[in-house]
């Protein structure tokens, strides 16, 4: 479980995050949604420790990542898996080497065990046939799947995904969403996904935070989001014709 409280962050005079508090539970796919510039990526970076908030706490199962010592923070990061917006696979390594990388760095497994684990992860994301390929030989969706395989290689407790569907077609987006959701349930991990994809919201949103102008404007889940009375959220949601029609049809 991850608990964030009173997160505040500003860049020079611009306040990007203002007093954001939430709890992300195990086994749930937690979504952070909002318009571009709402502060989603900054919030995610504050949670994973890539940015330090000016105020507030980020507590991972009782450990505040902000006040942890450098060594403890480094050790804790090994419990975190992250899928970046552009996959961020290492260009100089093949897909298999990318997935083996965290195992090479942090596990005490033998080479054979590491190889088996990496192949298992690649098999889990249906990418075993592309194990010898390099990132630039893969499609966007395949890169995302390889990045998920790398993120889960060390069996993380926490999984973060920054706009996992950006640049993907709807069908591939659906596959990535399902994969993230299935992995979350399968390993009972805490997953936080940063997105503005409405299909993801309606498909995997066990818990949803809606950010607007750096503030937490609404909190709920996919079952009650369409019936919200929040005007800003409705403006965001119903800018999509599809969602508007879904609501008109009674959410079916």
């Amino acid at each position: 479980m991850i608990e964030i409280s009173s997160i505040y962050k500003k860049f020079e005079s611009q306040v990007v995050l203002n007093d954001i508090s939430a709890v992300f539970e195990n086994g749930k796919t937690n979504l952070i949604i909002g318009m571009s510039g709402a502060g989603k990526t900054v919030l995610l970076k504050c949670i994973v420790g890539l940015l330090t908030p000016d105020n507030g706490k980020v507590i991972y199962d009782g450990r505040n990542i902000i006040t942890l010592g450098k060594k403890e923070r480094h050790l804790m990061r090994r419990e975190i898996g992250m899928l970046f917006q552009n996959a961020a696979l290492f260009d100089s390594m093949s897909v298999l080497e990318n997935v083996m990388f965290p195992l090479d760095m942090f596990s005490d497994m033998t080479y054979k065990e590491r190889l088996e684990r990496a192949r298992f992860c690649l098999d889990r994301v249906n990418l075993i046939d592309a194990q010898e390929k390099y990132p630039d030989e893969l499609s966007g969706g395949m890169q995302k799947r390889a990045a998920i395989a790398r993120a889960i290689a060390l069996e993380p407790k926490y999984l973060f995904c920054d706009e996992p569907n950006s640049g993907l077609d709807p069908q591939t987006s659906l596959i990535i969403d399902e994969l993230i959701h299935d992995i979350t349930k399968e390993y009972n991990i805490t997953t936080v996904v940063n997105t503005h994809d409405m299909n993801s919201v309606m498909g995997i949103g066990d818990h949803i935070l809606f950010l607007a102008n750096g503030k937490l404007a609404w909190e709920g889940n996919k079952d009650n989001i369409l019936n919200s009375n929040n005007e800003t959220l409705n403006d965001f949601l119903f800018s999509s014709d599809l969602v508007r029609k879904v609501k008109e049809m009674g959410g079916k």
């Binding site: 804790m76 990061r77 975190i80 970046f84 552009n86 260009d91 760095m105």
Partner: peptide
């Protein structure tokens, strides 16, 4: 391309 961020997240 965030590859350095990926290393940092892993604890490297």
């Amino acid at each position: 391309t965030q590859q350095i961020d990926a290393l940092e997240i892993m604890g490297v």
